[in-house]
């Protein structure tokens, strides 16, 4: 943990809201994108990110400093995002039923061939999102943290509150699923 970050945390614990403001500024984008990766839309991600920081401020005394602050914050964010997902599970299922959403989530219904580069990227992105929407919650969490947010396996284990072996198992299963369902251009 960087020295200045430690100082901000100490100050924030002492009730210095400006110091906590600095921590917010440092992590607000990462938390927004992390939540987006789970909930799939920026409007909800924006509101949830605020909740995450409020919760972090309230629980700052519980941060023991054994792990990185970002790891601790990511854990709160992941839990909040997954809670939100569970709460809106029914709505999500209904979304799947709509033709547009189905096209977005299911790779099978996406056009496989694309001419433009941007379309290729869009294609791969859609396929990844579709795969991640179908794997288990834990597998998706492991993939998102490991690949989209560049956390180490140890950090992912800490965020997910499980062992590194469990994390590797989740990653392995998610990748196995993608092997079968992800259609990569040029592969």
């Amino acid at each position: 943990m960087a020295f200045h970050e430690k100082r901000w945390i100490h100050k924030a614990r002492a009730g210095d809201s400006a110091a906590f403001g600095r921590l917010v500024t440092a992590y607000q984008d990462a938390i927004l994108y992390l939540i987006y990766d789970f909930v799939g839309n920026y409007e909800d991600a924006k509101d949830l990110a605020q909740d995450v920081f409020i919760k972090a401020f309230q629980r700052l005394d519980q941060f023991e400093g054994r792990s990185k602050f970002s790891t601790w914050l990511y854990r709160i964010a992941v839990n909040r995002a997954l809670d939100f997902k569970r709460q809106h599970y029914r709505e999500t299922i209904e979304d799947f039923d709509s033709p547009d959403a189905a096209r977005r989530y299911f790779a099978d219904e996406q056009p496989i061939q694309s001419v433009e580069r941007t379309l290729e990227q869009q294609e791969v992105r859609n396929q990844i999102e579709a795969c991640l929407a179908r794997v288990s919650e834990h597998q998706k969490t492991a993939v998102v943290l490991k690949y989209f947010h560049h956390q180490t396996t140890e950090e992912v284990a800490e965020i997910m509150n499980c062992s590194t072996t469990t994390v590797r198992t989740h990653l392995f299963r998610a990748i196995q699923y993608m092997r079968k369902n992800l259609i990569i251009e040029g592969a």
Binding site: S17, A18, F20, G21, V24, T25, Q28, K46, A49, Q50, F53, I54, F57
Partner: peptide, 9 residues
């Protein structure tokens, strides 16, 4: 802006 308003004193 919201984050600044909310968390910056």
């Amino acid at each position: 802006q919201t984050m600044n308003r909310r968390f910056m004193p």
